[in-house]
Amino acid sequence: MPEIATKETTREITFAEAVREALAEEMRRDSRVVILGEDVAEAGTPFKVLSGLVEEFGTQRVIDTPISEAGFTGLAVGAAMTGLRPVVDIMFGDFITLTMDQMVNQAAKVHYMSGGKWKVPMVMRTTLGAARRSAAQHSQSLHAWFSHVPGLKVVLPSTPYDAKGLLKTAIRDENPVIFFEDKMMFKMKGPVPLEEYTIPLGVADVKRVGTDITFVATSSMVQVALAAAVMLEEIGISAEVIDPRTTWPLDEKTLVESAKKTSRAIVIDEGYGRYGVTAELAAVIAEGAFFNLDAPVKRLGAMHVPIPFSPPLEDATVPNEQMVFDAARKLCGRS
């Protein structure tokens, strides 16, 4: 993480405010940027992430749509091809299923299929993460699906600082970018510079330096990994926490180098483990650091069940710091 040194140059804002600032700055900078989605204007979304934008930019640029995810996402693809830079808001990540043809068969392929002639500079903002007691259709983390598709980029910010810098870059990118925000993180505060900045896609961030084991954690799992690292420190295990920040493009080098250094790795992601992001990241580490590893790469993801409503059941489906702590201790031969 870059040095964010003094109180004069930074302030503490929430993740939601960071997202809003990124949008507002990019909308001021570029009149082609428009927001489309359900209840994005006066309502500012149910999460209130967009509150205030319609007051500044008007309903011509912050546009409430019907409840038609496929329709307005498809419209955004065409608008992006013809001169606008739309940011579509898909209220819950579970609803990306409704946009799949538009994103996978249209947005992702337009540039390649046209031999590089048409571009789709659009952003889809949506959510991931369980633990809001919202049951199986409002709690999934489906970012692996988009990460699987050539032509798409996938961003998973884990702090207010990353959210702002990455979203600004995503909006300026010439490709379709899907930006997943953890619902549980909207109120999380963190230091964000007063000065404008951007963060490139495809550059992992070392969230904590360590020597004994590498945690590769994404989005909602970064804080879990950091909390586990603190617990491990008390028993003398030094954990490094790497946040890839984007599943594609993927900073393979930073992941592999860290695993080579520590010789052990656990990958933690809130998506389903089976055929998921943890599987891919673990494979990258296994291939790249095999001869330096002292243990198999371990994966922790969401339990392979539809997310249940009942709080004790729901909580059991998501990796927590105790699970990460236990897995790390075992991997380090300290059980």
């Binding site: 428009v34 011509q60 496929a70 329709g71 996402t73 498809g74 419209l75 955004a76 693809v77 065409g78 608008a79 992006a80 091809m81 013809t82 001169g83 606008l84 739309p86 043809d101 538009q102 068969n105 249209q106 337009v110 299929m113 046209s114 048409w118």
Partner: peptide, 25 residues
């Protein structure tokens, strides 16, 4: 030509989006 499309109705969003751009711009 924004493209021929092999998904049936696959280009309906794109065409509508092009019209949206035309109006917006």
């Amino acid at each position: 030509n924004l493209g021929a499309n092999a998904i049936v109705a696959g280009s309906t969003g794109i065409a509508t989006g092009a019209a949206f751009s035309a109006k917006q711009l």
